[in-house]
Amino acid sequence: MIISAMVAVGENNEIGKDNDLPWRLPNDWAYLRRVTMGHSIILGRKNYESIGKPLDGRKNIVLTTNKDYKAEGCHIAYSIEDALSKCEGEEVFILGGEEIYRQFLPYTQKLYITKIHAPFDGDRFFPTIDYSLWKELSVEKGIKDEKNHYDYYFHVFEKIK
């Protein structure tokens, strides 16, 4: 199984503010949907609650320490091992938030990073990556338009074995 992290980051590695995204970038949501469709996804409880519902067409696994937590349409996990045991398919996607990325990073083999070339006010951050340990597989410039107001790029990295 390939463990992949998928994240959008601002110029300062910011990923969230007040349990929400500090930007609106519909093309990034479309990219996330296209790449993760049909796969298992792992989200932390706070991240799941900020979205408010399971992402359709994917096996949603919510990681929490609350043994009484319930989320309709989702599988609940209480540890990294428990979450991974519930995954199906060749590739699983870690969708955050900050602490979930930090916990899974040692196990992560691929990174899908949307780099947004603008600074934002953030209170949650993606862990610092030592890119010397990663090989860039692809980069694609996103389309800036009336709904996507920032310069951004879709990067895919693979951990060097």
Rank of each mutant, 00 (worst) to 15 (best):
G73Y: 00
D151G: 06
D18Q: 14
D151K: 06
K144H: 07
C74K: 02
A83I: 03
I61F: 01
V92Y: 05
Y152F: 07
D18Y: 14
Y131M: 04
D151C: 05
N47L: 14
L63R: 09
A30R: 11
F93Q: 04
D145K: 03
S132H: 09
H149W: 09
S79F: 12
E91F: 07
L25R: 03
V139K: 13
I41S: 03
N60Y: 02
N60L: 01
H75I: 15
E158Y: 08
K17R: 12
I143R: 10
G38T: 01
L55I: 00
F157D: 04
I129M: 02
N12P: 08
T128G: 10
L63C: 10
E88V: 13
E99F: 15
D28C: 04
I2M: 15
F154G: 08
D18W: 14
D28L: 01
L133I: 09
G57N: 01
K135G: 10
I15M: 07
R45S: 05
I41E: 03
L25S: 02
P127M: 04
G73A: 01
P22S: 09
H155K: 07
E98R: 13
W134I: 00
F93P: 02
S40W: 03
P119C: 11
A71W: 00
L63E: 08
I2Y: 15
Q103I: 13
S50A: 12
D123M: 05
Y69E: 06
V7T: 02
E136A: 07
L133R: 12
P127L: 03
F154P: 09
K161W: 13
K17Q: 13
W29D: 15
D68E: 15
N12Y: 10
M37F: 14
Y107N: 12
Y31F: 05
F157H: 06
P54H: 03
L32Q: 14
K144M: 09
F104K: 06
H117N: 10
I41L: 03
M37D: 12
R24W: 13
I129Q: 02
K17Y: 15
E136P: 09
A30L: 14
E90H: 12
S50L: 08
Q103T: 12
R124S: 14
H149E: 11
K46E: 15
K115W: 08
Y31D: 04
I51S: 04
A118Q: 11
N19T: 09
N13Q: 07
T114V: 04
F126C: 04
A8E: 03
A5R: 08
Q109C: 13
V7Q: 02
N47G: 14
S85H: 11
E88R: 11
R58T: 01
A83P: 07
N12C: 08
Y131F: 11
D56F: 11
D123K: 06
A77L: 05
F120R: 05
G142P: 08
T36R: 02
M1E: 12
V9T: 11
F104W: 09
G89C: 08
L43I: 11
Y150G: 00
K159T: 08
G44S: 08
P119I: 10
D121M: 11
L55C: 01
R102F: 15
R24L: 13
E99A: 15
